[in-house]
Design a protein around this nucleic acid. Structure first.
Length: 802
RNA sequence: GCCCGGGUGGCGGAACGGCAGACGCUGUCGACUCAAAAUCGAUUGCCCGAAAGGGCGUGUGGGUUCGAAUCCCACCCCGGGCACCA
């Protein structure tokens, strides 16, 4: 007789078919008494086939989804594809294959593999962001923001590749060079579309306090927004009759200003001086790459403009310089320079031999950015600089020369791309009416087919002349379509809303339906999206809430960021040849084994190292569980008679998994607990009542189900005869979590010397008596005097000897 | 430079201030087998010791405590983020 073997190839398709046939994971949008839980993994970008990060994110998310369902929640767990984007377009440029074809082929492969993993997805809500039925509403949202002035066109400096004649995304600029041709990238000023995310800077900052996100992600967002409090102060140039504002976080150091600096991009630099050396400097600065210009340790450069501005606090005339260490994009593009209290100004002053005047005392050496008493600051001398900050600002305000101000590092979101494979911007340019929005009833503005995807200094869409030529929606005259497409981050900034009402053809969603699901209760994804995607999605949510289109202020109530899986301690990459392809392992060991292994190598928030030997261990564990079910004795699956150690172990495991999975998403220790239970099952199965064996088996199957749904279902059905996903999550009996006897630790000066079994009910005095009776204590004491005894009930007795 | 994480056996990793190393891998030994694989059982931090037993051990140095991997201070190393943001 051949022994039966755990065969995932048989078990897994069987359950997958049943779940599909019975629409098990689908949920309706009808009202329901159960509390809702929206569990969502970050939208995958379909390129090639899924990688190990996808397997991990869905393994985590699915465990949460299953756990919540069995704890009484009605769970929305949808999936779609972030289908627009550069890789498909670059592929098209190389091969001529339409991006839609390559993308849809990838989507088909992703879908096939996701289904082979047995993830509990409501597939009726699936979509790709490249489908007109989706991007119609991306355009619709764009128009709503446009109406609010939150989407606008403006001139901006962008990365420009002189050889390819195209604008590049920041991600396409590698070490200052074009990723495709290797040319040095230049900065060019071009008309671009923006979203006014900076209007929401404060709200984006404040409501971080209301959401359950990892601290480091919140910190990254705070730093990115970069709010600084200070003052705006006017410096007048009498010769030109113009006031120049600066932003400073240190108005208390105004008396220490000894010169004034403008960024090369500042529009008034050449007005101040058009001397050849100034022109040359500005020219060079503008064409320098960010890399060349940005290095902090680089020596400061600049040119004197031979003009002065007046310091509003003391009337001093300060020489004006142009220098590229001042950034045009931040503040006003001009600064007051206080070399005594600013590192960069200090360096510049040293280089150009400018005076350094200390106005805040307490410094050991300059530059000094700490706090202290004011000096050389007229009537503010002696005040603490924090007080002087307020008084100087108030004084300037009363004189009309300054005011309190807040500045942000965050910039508006540049959303236009001169690219083909993206969502068209629904705007028409009319020679008479100017910029005109495409009316809602003409949406979607469909992406036309083109012959050549390569950018030629304009969007490839410009080549689709029939498409570009249109009539103005306002005056009916001849007009042209906007040929830029949207950044793909726009697509992914609202997809979680669409899932709630994915098949609505009248609107992007129904507000009431949305209110039934939003916010996402648990969002899961990689930390690489900590800033861009997560910031943009928060911005969209707030802007749409202001338009009264939805009722939440934050899209993602809780966020979980998974760590990266490595192999041999190194990041997986094709060039290293250490890439793990999920499909290979799913083929070899089955989805359950592969999913469990990735959840077992460490806490999913941390990294984890993939080892082929390790997955064998998990496969062994699942095989043991399966075989134990195969060999299970007949009988009931509720334990009869006195609870055995095995029954107690099962309750211990229930308690452990419930807490580890439910409270801290510790999938690795959850699985370890189930492994322990199965190990005990093998050890004790000959000794205990058959009902106890069956109870332990059913419990193990029930607990392993969120991680290994197919095997969990199979074993549970064999033992208990029911569908495990229809069963409530098991409850640990508190009485069975304790034992009659406990192990008492005996310590001498805090070091372990003995372990004794004593009754759990022992009082403090009894525990001490038991401990004093330890033979090892007697031999170790060796006549020493016990000066103190610490008793920790239920745990230990510590004798302190001098 | 600044801000976060993190340093624990041969490896991945456990451990409310209270038994360091759960669980898995690897290695070693044994059972089954003609043999191997699979499986099952034992063992597996380091040092001394035949054993009983003892000593040492959580990056380094200090501190708090009856007791520290865990808390505090300083330092070293690794990973990540930001980086001329006035």
């Amino acid at each position: 007789m051949t022994r039966a073997v755990y065969d995932p190839k048989e078990i897994e398709p069987k359950w997958q078919r049943l779940w599909a046939d019975e629409h098990t994971w689908e949920v309706t949008n009808e009202p329901d008494e159960r509390p809702k839980s929206y569990v969502l993994e970050m939208l995958p970008y379909p390129s090639g086939e899924p990688h190990i990060g996808h397997l991990k994110v869905y393994s985590v998310g699915d465990a949460i989804a299953h756990f919540r369902r069995r704890n009484g929640y009605r769970v929305l767990h949808p999936l779609g594809y972030d289908a627009f984007g550069l890789p498909a377009e670059n592929h098209a440029i190389r091969t001529g294959q339409h991006p839609r074809e390559s993308t849809e082929a990838s989507i088909a492969e992703f879908r096939r593999q996701f289904k082979s993993w047995g993830i509990s997805i409501d597939w009726t809500r699936e979509f790709g962001t490249h489908e007109p039925r989706y991007y119609r509403w991306t355009q619709w949202i764009f128009l709503r923001l446009y109406e609010q002035g939150l989407a606008y066109r403006s001139e901006a400096a962008v990365n420009w590749c002189p050889k390819d004649q195209t604008v590049l995304a920041n991600e396409q600029v590698i070490d200052g060079r074009c990723e495709r041709c290797g040319s040095m990238v230049e900065s060019r000023s071009l008309e671009q579309w923006f979203f006014g995310i900076t209007e929401y800077a404060d709200r984006l900052l404040e409501s971080l306090d209301d959401i359950d996100w990892p601290a480091h992600v919140k910190t990254m967002q705070r730093n990115w927004i970069g709010r600084s409090e200070g003052a705006r102060v006017s410096f007048r140039c009498e010769e030109l009759g113009t006031d120049y504002g600066v932003f400073t976080t240190r108005p208390d150091t105004l008396f220490g200003a000894t010169f004034f600096v403008m960024a090369p991009e500042h529009p008034d630099v050449l007005r101040m001086s058009d001397a050849p050396e100034v022109r040359e400097y500005v020219e060079r600065a503008l064409t320098a790459s960010a890399e060349e210009r940005g290095a902090e340790d680089r020596e400061k450069t600049g040119v004197a403009l031979r003009r002065t501005v007046t310091n509003p606090v003391n009337g001093e005339e300060l020489p004006v310089f142009v220098a590229d260490y001042v950034l045009a994009e931040y503040g006003t593009g001009a600064i007051m320079a206080v070399p005594a209290h600013d590192e960069r100004d200090f360096q510049f002053a040293q280089r150009f031999d400018l005076p350094v005047r200390q106005v805040v005392g307490g410094a050991e050496e300059l530059p000094f950015s700490g706090e202290g008493p004011m000096m050389k600051s007229g009537r503010f001398d002696g005040l603490h600089n924090r007080e002087a900050f307020d008084q100087i600002v108030d004084w300037l305000a009363s004189e009309g020369k300054g005011e309190r101000a807040v500045n942000y590092r965050l910039r508006d979101w540049l959303l236009s791309r001169q690219r083909y494979w993206g969502c068209p911007i629904p705007i028409v340019h009319c020679p008479n009416c100017g910029e005109v929005a495409v009316p809602d009833d003409q949406l979607p503005v469909e992406l036309p087919d083109v012959e050549d995807y390569a950018p030629q200094g304009r969007s490839p869409l410009a080549a689709a002349e029939d498409w570009v030529r249109t009539t103005c929606p306002r005056c009916g005259g001849e007009a042209e379509r906007e040929t830029d497409t949207m950044d793909t981050f726009v697509d992914s900034s609202w997809y979680f809303l669409r899932y709630c009402d994915a098949n609505n053809e009248q609107a992007p969603w129904d507000r009431e339906v949305l209110a039934r699901w939003m916010p996402v209760d648990q969002y899961i994804g990689g930390v690489e999206h900590a800033i861009l995607h997560l910031m943009y999605a928060r911005f969209f949510t707030k802007a749409l809430a202001d338009l009264e289109l939805l009722d939440v202020q934050e899209p993602f109530e809780a966020l979980f960021t998974q760590g990266m899986v490595t192999r041999g301690g190194a990041k997986m990459s094709k060039s290293k040849g250490n890439v793990v392809s999920p499909s290979d392992y799913v083929e070899r060991y089955g989805a359950d084994t592969t999913r469990c292994y990735i959840l077992y190598v460490g806490h999913p928030a941390e990294g984890g190292d993939w080892a082929d030997e390790g997955i064998e261990g998990i496969h062994r564990f699942l095989s043991r569980l399966w075989r134990a079910a195969e060999e299970a004795p007949e009988g009931p699956d509720e334990p009869e008679g006195e609870p055995s150690d095995l029954v107690r172990k099962a309750h211990w495991a229930i308690d452990k998994v419930t807490r580890d999975l439910g409270e801290r998403l510790a999938t690795h220790t959850s699985l370890a607990a189930v492994i322990e239970l199965v190990n005990d099952l093998y050890r004790l199965r000959e000794e205990v009542d058959p009902s106890h064996v069956r109870f332990a088996l059913a419990t193990a199957a029930s607990l392993v189900f969120p991680f290994a749904p197919h095997l969990g279902s199979e074993v549970y059905e064999r033992i208990a005869g029911d569908r495990v996903w229809e069963q409530p999550w098991p409850q640990a009996d508190p009485d069975l979590l304790t034992h009659d006897e406990i192990q008492l630790i005996v310590q001498l000066n805090g070091k372990l010397i003995d372990r004794l079994m004593v009754p759990a009910s022992a009082t403090r005095e009894e525990l001490e008596q038991h401990a004093r009776g330890s033979e090892r204590l007697a031999s170790r004491l060796d006549g020493g005097q016990i000066v103190k005894t610490i008793v920790v009930p239920g745990k230990l007795v510590n004798f302190v000897v001098d």
